[in-house]
């Protein structure tokens, strides 16, 4: 390394006066700022527009007018029984996330902390689940569930979502566990603490931020899942929000107000969950990639 500290410090005073003269914008900077503005609009406009449009009346929906805001779209949406589907989505996603995260935490602990034969092979097998095309699972799972009477049940779709979220959750959690020092849980084991208590009382609290991030990802995955829901939930009263939203979209394309209200309600929970967690989430996902 030939990074000498003195010149680095000498460059500092040069950087500061520029920072202080914030009003003076160079053409290059202007271009950057303009690009940033356009990118920001493209990224935010579509989602923002859905929320905006969901409060507009059918007449003003397509015009740029800012008048006439109404809750009518939501009122009619709930009158058509959309509340049931919100309930379905919440129950299914929350149950699946709880079970999947619980199972994944235990599996991640074992993969990260224990030595056993075939470990690399079994772990590799679990990881390959991430690369698997879900579409080819649909037919066999449908037939299996039909035989077991699990079609159109909460149990069936929850089991399915648990299975599809495990590989990614285990991947993220093992990544987190690798950044937690082993000394703590190893010491507890030497002190004679029962292994299951070690997971629950020592490992789990330390990795809680990682668990929260993992659960959030799993939630987004379950909440917006369409394919399995399409195959396994055929009765109207069992359907989740994405299915109903798309059906709305197909059937009454004239009822744009209702489509927008349904879309806004489908997008709201992930946004509420993700926005507060933002920096942690992206840092967590990149943890492995950042490590050199």
């Amino acid at each position: 390394m030939r990074a000498e500290p003195t010149p680095a410090i000498e460059t500092r005073p040069l950087a500061h006066p520029v920072a202080r003269r914030r009003r003076a914008v160079r053409p290059g900077e202007l271009l950057l700022l303009a690009t940033a503005l356009v990118s920001a609009i493209v990224l935010v406009y579509p989602t923002a527009w859905v929320f905006f449009a969901s409060f507009k009346t059918q007449e003003t929906l397509f015009s740029g007018e800012f008048a006439d805001y109404t809750l009518e779209n939501y009122r009619r949406l709930f009158a058509s029984g959309f509340g049931v589907h919100i309930g379905n989505s919440l129950v299914i996603s929350l149950a699946a996330v709880l079970i999947s995260t619980f199972v994944s935490v235990i599996a991640a602990y074992v993969f990260s902390r224990r030595r056993f034969r075939w470990k690399a092979t079994i772990f590799g097998g679990v990881m390959l689940g991430q690369t698997f095309p879900w579409i080819i699972l649909v037919t066999p799972v449908f037939i299996l569930f039909a035989r077991l009477g699990l079609l159109n049940t909460y149990l069936g779709i929850v089991v399915c979502y648990v299975a599809v979220t495990i590989p990614f959750s285990v991947y993220l959690l093992v990544g987190y566990l690798e950044s937690v020092p082993r000394s703590l849980d190893e010491m507890a084991i030497i002190d004679g603490c029962p292994p299951f208590l070690v997971i629950w009382r020592i490992v789990f609290p330390i990795m809680l931020p990682g668990v929260v991030a993992t659960a959030t990802y799993a939630f987004l995955l379950c909440w917006s899942e369409y394919l399995f829901a399409l195959a396994l939930l055929t009765r109207t009263e069992m359907k989740t929000m994405p299915l109903v939203l798309y059906a709305f979209f197909g059937e009454h394309t004239t009822e744009w107000g209702q489509v927008m209200a349904a879309a806004a309600l489908t997008a709201l929970p992930p946004l509420l969950l993700f926005l507060p967690l933002q920096t942690k989430l992206s840092a967590g996902l990149a943890a492995g990639a950042v490590k050199q």
């Binding site: 990224l43 989602t47 987004l220 879309a263 997008a267 946004l271 926005l275 933002q278």
Partner: peptide
């Protein structure tokens, strides 16, 4: 920008498709 980037990401694909269509 970090916040702005979360918005399309947290938007479920089904909603993204509906908006873009």
């Amino acid at each position: 920008f970090h916040v702005i980037l979360i918005v399309p990401w947290a938007t479920p694909p089904i909603v993204a498709v509906v908006i873009w269509r």
